[in-house]
Computed example of a mutant assay.
Amino acid sequence: MPPSHDFDTALLPSGTLWQPRASLMACVRGAMVRSTVGATLSDEQRINHFPATPLCSLSWWFEGSSVVLQGARPDHPGALTDTRGPMPGRWVLTGPQTRPGASWCPGPVHAMMVMLMPDALHLMTGLEPTDLIDRFVDASTVLPPAWIAMCQQVQAASDDAQRMERLEDFLEPRWQACRPVLPLQGHRYADWSLHLAQRAAASAPGRSLRQLERRIKRWSGLPLRELRGMGRAEQAFFRVVQAQTEGVVHWAHIAADSGYADQSHLCRETRRITGFSPEVLRDGIARHESFWAYRLWM
């Protein structure tokens, strides 16, 4: 769970979280832009920690590169084995991630990760989210030609604002042409999974629980139970952020208000989704460069 706002003053600015146009809010969750160009960082500081997520993502590297890290040791933010795999392409598409992950940048980097709702990606491209679960894929091998042309235009843009504009100009007409009649207005995971369930119930004949769950898994890549679990975790994250602004965090109250059975349940789920216990995650966000993505969401 998030720390107090007493962040280490040596931390870099976390980056920029770009919010999509209103017309794309059910399609794009957001875009994270991160630049360490001009900064001097240690090997440990160039690690990037990410939680498990139901989202898909499309990433660009404008300067520098990243590699995938494996072998994270729970509760030790900087203790990762030297098992490293290169990213599979110039532009990388990832599917829903059922486990927390980490990457490492060999040097300064300027990159952008656009987070897409998996059902929206399916509607616009025909790709099956279930085929992308826990995978990093060379985007040029799976995306339609028009998408590859868009990736090239984003890569060639002069600054981040222009990159986002080109991306949104590309996505907007495609999303408006295929978006479901039942709008997926929920921008957080819990609301989104509820809308998926409503859409599954209304979309086709056959409304048994098994048929509904099969549709939801096809659209999102993950079973409804997993989506609801991530929704609880996200609710808890933002409840803690709010509680800290008020000066005190009661973990038992956070657990109960977020739908957990008890505080122990909250701790187990936090470790499963992030790889760290709540206290280690709390300290990591406040004091470790590698938790920049969590700080950005706060």
Rank of each mutant, 00 (worst) to 15 (best):
A146E: 13
T245I: 14
P74A: 06
G38M: 05
S57A: 12
A161M: 11
T94H: 05
V68F: 15
G89N: 01
H110N: 09
P77A: 04
T81H: 13
A293R: 05
Q152Y: 13
G126N: 03
S193G: 03
I47E: 00
L80P: 01
E44S: 10
E226R: 15
D283A: 13
T98I: 06
W91N: 03
M298L: 15
L121F: 11
M25A: 15
E246V: 14
C27W: 02
R271M: 12
V181Q: 13
V241Y: 11
V137A: 02
H253P: 02
W297K: 13
D119E: 11
A256M: 09
M1E: 05
A146H: 11
T53E: 00
L212V: 08
F237R: 06
Q198F: 14
P106F: 13
P86Q: 09
A201Q: 09
M25K: 15
L184R: 06
G247N: 07
T9V: 15
H49N: 02
T245A: 15
S264K: 12
A252T: 11
A261D: 09
H253Y: 15
R207D: 07
D8E: 08
S103Y: 06
A190R: 11
F276M: 06
E279D: 10
F291Y: 15
L17P: 02
W292Q: 01
V142Q: 05
V240M: 01
P54I: 04
Q211V: 10
A243W: 08
A146D: 13
P118K: 04
Y294M: 00
G15P: 06
Q242S: 14
E234M: 08
E279Y: 08
L11M: 06
W61L: 09
M124P: 01
R99A: 12
I148W: 03
A52T: 01
E269S: 12
Q97Y: 07
A120R: 05
C56L: 02
R174P: 04
F238M: 06
A161Q: 11
W104M: 03
E289C: 07
G64A: 04
A26W: 10
Q19P: 03
D6K: 13
L281S: 00
H195E: 02
P173Y: 12
G247R: 08
Q97A: 11
V28D: 01
G78N: 13
P129S: 01
M113A: 12
M124R: 03
W147F: 10
W192N: 04
S103V: 02
L41K: 01
G231A: 08
L212S: 01
W147V: 02
R271E: 12
D169Y: 10
S158V: 15
R163C: 05
D75M: 07
A31E: 02
A293E: 05
G64S: 03
D43S: 13
K217E: 14
I216R: 00
G284K: 05
A139K: 00
W104S: 00
A10M: 12
L93P: 00
F7W: 14
Y294K: 01
G259H: 06
Q242M: 15
Q263M: 12
Q152P: 00
I133H: 08
H110T: 09
A22K: 09
V28L: 15
L184T: 00
